[in-house]
Design a binder for these strands. Structure first.
Lengths: 189, 189
DNA sequence: CGGCAACTTCAGTCATAACTGAAGGTACTG
DNA sequence: CAGTACCTTCAGTTATGACTGAAGTTGCCG
């Protein structure tokens, strides 16, 4: 059988081709994701939306990245869970469209906050329990107790520092980067 | 309390039992590892050595955590690659013994440095290339170029900030935590 | 109300990372 | 210099997480 002309590509489902630059960025971002415990596809979708000038519907994302529609659905749910992607309704289109947060400082803040909730807070709780239990257990646990306590205090310090950052006026965070050469001056004195 | 003599410890291969507290800490640490892209076993070994008062030989680690000797060998190599575990020769024992860095601030610094080398620096390079290529590609890439450039600048800022931290006198870093309530004062003014 | 489009869920498949045990190298030791 | 202890490497296996396609749900639209 002689298969003739390609699909004419009407309206919404036009060819979703990535520019070489976008491709390079998305692939790298996906790779970085895996290194930090984020699913590669999730990271790629995020990168794609971050580069996109307009909100994208899920099927277009699936076509562009060549993954299953269902996979995109799951990944978008996760990205919304991280609060860095949201639904952006488009007039006259029944499909849901998605857009990424574009302000990187804000994005950074939000991601840190989410990781705090999911990982730091539970860790502080568990280490606190460990220290308490080691205390009851007597002197045989004294060394371990001290080690865990130091870890706990370190993490708690970081947590405090983060909250300082968290509660700065939104625009102020950027200013922190002007710190160049000023960090030393913060030290006690 | 009847404090009877502890296990006679027949030379090197005595029973390697973990206290409940150590177990809890090690398991949690392993779990946190996976969330940040670190192999669970690698993280557990690190936790074990961190809690250990004395350097441990690989076979004892294997017995304690119930993993294969070869797995421990590989994992220790990786931990040494991260520069947070090192060999500590023990007089009269041919086996290599391993100890973890105990100073958490220093450990944090070293890990950040290593992640910078492995992930941040390559990312800065790739994003730089992306921006350059997007520039050549003309106005169709203008938006993507701007997004990537913002990301690049953000990461570069973080990088600079980290280097400030990195070059502080070793004991000084701890002082930074005293920042409570002082962060605001850093802002331009 | 029937049909369709958008979306989600989930059981099964697939890819990858992790782990094991056997084999081999090295160097100490009697 | 044979025997042993220690360590590493690697081919093969197992476990984990990621992904797919089919089936199901919802709600719009003619």
């Amino acid at each position: 059988m002689t298969e003739v002309a390609e699909v004419p590509a009407v309206s919404k489902d036009s060819k979703p081709a990535l520019s070489p630059v976008a491709q390079k960025f998305i692939l790298h971002w996906g790779e970085m994701g895996t290194r930090w415990g984020v699913n590669r596809t999730v990271a790629q979708i995020h990168a794609l939306l971050y580069l996109s000038q307009r909100p994208m519907p899920a099927d277009e994302i699936a076509d562009t990245l060549a993954v299953a529609r269902s996979n995109v659905s799951t990944s978008l749910r996760e990205l919304q869970g991280w609060r860095i992607v949201r639904v952006a309704p488009i007039l006259g289109d029944r499909r849901q469209h998605f857009e990424s947060m574009k302000d990187i400082w804000e994005m950074f803040r939000v991601i840190l906050d989410e990781r705090k909730k999911r990982e730091i807070d539970p860790t502080i709780r568990v280490l606190g329990e460990c220290v308490a239990e080691a205390g009851k257990a007597g002197p045989s646990e004294a060394y371990a107790r001290e080690r865990i306590n130091e870890m706990l205090e370190f993490i708690a310090s970081m947590d405090t520092l983060f909250q300082e950052f968290q509660h700065l006026p939104p625009t102020a965070a950027r200013g922190l980067i002007k710190l160049r050469g000023r960090v030393k001056k913060l030290l006690p004195g």
